[in-house]
């Protein structure tokens, strides 16, 4: 395979301009889904084409790019996307969150707090927070125009009535700047609080559904809840078995077929930094 004959960051300049205009409008109307002329990318729809197009439209030679999937820099899809930009744009890449100027992510926000000047790019499979309740875009656009989100509140309240709590654990809907209901992409609701008043600019790209949206820095992002059922995040009984962190999102790792399992940080960079700094979890202590 060769990349000769393609533009910087793959997209042609006209496509980048179209995307850039859409992104500026997205920032100006926080949480609103701006339609854009999504292009076929050399990766399949559903595999991050929205995030890739956003990244391609903003990336410059001075950027340092980090790509994560499920919190990890090392999963194949993250590796593949990082290779794509290293090849087509020649940008520097990193695993270290503080060094990155642009972080493209699928399904997680890093545990390391983001800083002013950084840009998060989220890959979004389904940008419409109302889509499970109403699949027709013609209708959901009207609901957004009227800020009529009663539907969503009813759905969440039915959960509470039936299960005693809200049965949504990821892609948990948020209200942005007290106006637009927004899908935060399938991040665990554990990450939702990180969206609120973040110093970083957060951009969301949905390639297949052909929409981009944004949350500017220092913007109110509120997870929907009820006075008697306030929003809460997942908690684990034990800390990370590798680094001992008790403030991170943990993945369950199945160790054998007789019920053995352990819990480790989903954010691989955060976990390895903590281990390098001398922190150790139960599995490491046992092995020592």
């Amino acid at each position: 395979m060769t990349t000769s004959g393609y533009n910087f960051a793959y997209l042609d300049e006209q496509t980048k301009r179209m995307l850039r205009r859409a992104l500026l409008k997205a920032v100006a109307i926080p949480g609103y889904q701006v339609p854009f002329g999504s292009r076929e990318m050399p990766l399949p729809y559903g595999w991050g084409t929205g995030g890739i197009q956003v990244t391609a439209a903003i990336l410059g030679t001075n950027d340092v790019l980090k790509v994560i999937d499920q919190g990890s820099d090392d999963t194949v899809n993250a590796v593949n996307i990082r290779r794509f930009f290293a090849r087509t744009a020649g940008v520097a890449t990193t695993n270290r969150t503080p060094e990155a100027t642009v972080i493209q992510t699928r399904h997680r926000i890093p545990e390391t707090p983001l800083a002013a000047g950084q840009i998060m790019v989220y890959q979004v499979p389904e940008p419409e927070p109302l889509h499970r309740l109403e699949p027709r875009e013609a209708v959901t656009r009207k609901l957004h125009a009227l800020a009529d989100y009663g539907f969503m509140h009813v759905k969440l309240y039915e959960d509470i009535a039936r299960y005693g709590h809200i049965a949504t654990t990821y892609d948990y809907p948020v209200l942005v700047n007290d106006r637009y209901l927004m899908a935060p992409s399938p991040i665990p609701k554990f990450d939702n609080p990180k969206l609120n008043h973040s110093p970083a600019l957060q951009l969301f790209g949905a390639g297949r559904e052909k929409r981009v949206y944004a949350v500017p820095p220092y913007t109110k992002v509120e997870s929907l809840d009820f006075e008697d059922h306030p929003f809460s995040v997942q908690q684990w009984d034990a800390p990370c078995a590798l680094c001992g962190a008790s403030d991170s999102f943990l993945d369950e790792v199945v160790l054998d077929d007789v019920g053995g399992r352990m819990f480790v940080c989903s954010d691989s960079e955060y976990c390895s930094n903590r281990q390098a700094a001398g922190h150790a979890g139960s599995a490491v202590k046992e092995a020592a």
């Binding site: 850039r20 920032v27 903003i58 030679t61 000047g117 944004a214």
Partner: peptide
């Protein structure tokens, strides 16, 4: 490259 640089300034300015 120039329009990329100017756009990033605009994006930062709009944000």
């Amino acid at each position: 490259p120039d329009s990329q640089r100017i756009f990033r300034q605009l994006l930062d300015a709009m944000a």
